[in-house]
């Protein structure tokens, strides 16, 4: 393996190396193709789509489909495009992410640095929340939201996302704080600091990475959610994913693929942006949220 870094390579080695790169680039093409096709389709007029192929570049690029997707496409009963639903998603995601992250931070702090009898059991029980298929709580949740008067509201979805995000946020913070030496907390206790002062002055200042990971994870999860959206919202309060599905799966006679693609990209933009802006934390969250117990 190290021989590659020395400039001299035998012929078979070079061929091996070349095919290695070829395969990697082919796969890169495979992963990029759908995004590429979405983008070019979204700027083609419909007649080009009907006559051209998937990968033909637009001859007369137009932003019309984007404008239509954003402001005037027919979704459900309204002709107002996806923008209202995009805003709904923001109104759901921002509070739900912030609340679940903050509670997760404090929970993780307690479960790692202020353990009490039963706290490990609590943590193990909470872990279950990371794994249950949400189908098993949908019906009671629908009923509960009804009783609380939150059926079909944005607040209802905020509640749902906050509650079911807690397991993950707590897991993230707990595992991060376990790695911070207990001695640091002990030193602060001896210095006279109490529960909250230690949290504010000692733990929070070193928590930036885990906040990033958690916020990104939660944002992606909540923004991309479809199941809760489709079950617990109606009409005007639907999140963008549900609206996109309604747009794409409409039974209208003329399918406007360019508008579909523009709407899909709009729905994907926030999480794509987060991914490209802070990919490091995104991947860390994936692999950390994945298994760790």
């Amino acid at each position: 393996m190290d021989s590659t870094s020395t400039g001299t390579m035998s012929l078979p080695q070079m061929i091996g190396r070349a095919s290695l790169y070829a395969i990697l680039f082919l796969f890169a093409l495979y992963f990029l193709a759908p995004l590429f096709i979405m983008v070019i389709t979204s700027v083609k007029p419909m007649d080009e789509i009907r006559t051209g192929t998937l990968i033909a570049l637009p001859k007369a690029p137009t932003l019309e489909p984007w404008l239509k997707a954003w402001g005037s496409a027919t979704i459900g009963v309204a002709n107002e495009g996806i923008k209202g639903f995009f805003m709904n998603s923001l109104r759901i995601a921002i509070p739900a992410v912030l609340i679940s992250t903050l509670i997760g931070a404090v929970n993780g702090y307690v479960l790692s640095k202020w353990k009490f009898k039963g706290s490990d059991t609590f943590f193990a029980m909470l872990l279950m929340g990371c794994f249950i298929p949400f189908q098993v709580i949908l019906l009671p949740m629908a009923r509960t939201l009804g009783v609380l008067g939150l059926s079909g509201t944005v607040s209802g979805l905020v509640l749902v996302h906050t509650v079911y995000g807690l397991a993950f946020t707590t897991l993230f913070f707990r595992n991060f704080y376990v790695g911070i030496p207990d001695e640091l907390v002990n030193a602060a206790k001896i210095d006279g600091a109490g529960f909250w002062r230690i949290f504010w002055k000692i733990m929070l200042p070193v928590s930036k990475p885990i906040f990033m990971v958690t916020i990104i994870w939660q944002t992606t999860q909540i923004w991309n959610d479809f199941l809760f959206g489709v079950c617990f919202s109606t009409g005007e309060t639907q999140p963008v994913t549900v609206a996109l599905n309604n747009l794409v799966n409409t039974s209208a006679s003329v399918k406007e693929y360019n508008v579909d693609m523009a709407a899909a990209i709009i729905a994907a933009l926030p999480t794509l942006f987060v991914y490209f802006a802070a990919g490091k934390y995104f991947v860390r969250g994936l692999t950390a949220g994945a298994v760790k117990g």
Binding site: P181, L184, A187, A188, I202, P205
Partner: peptide, 14 residues
């Protein structure tokens, strides 16, 4: 009382 720890436990952010 005051305590000195093996890992020193200096507050890293201060």
């Amino acid at each position: 009382i005051a305590m000195v720890f093996q890992s020193y436990a200096l507050y890293p952010n201060m």
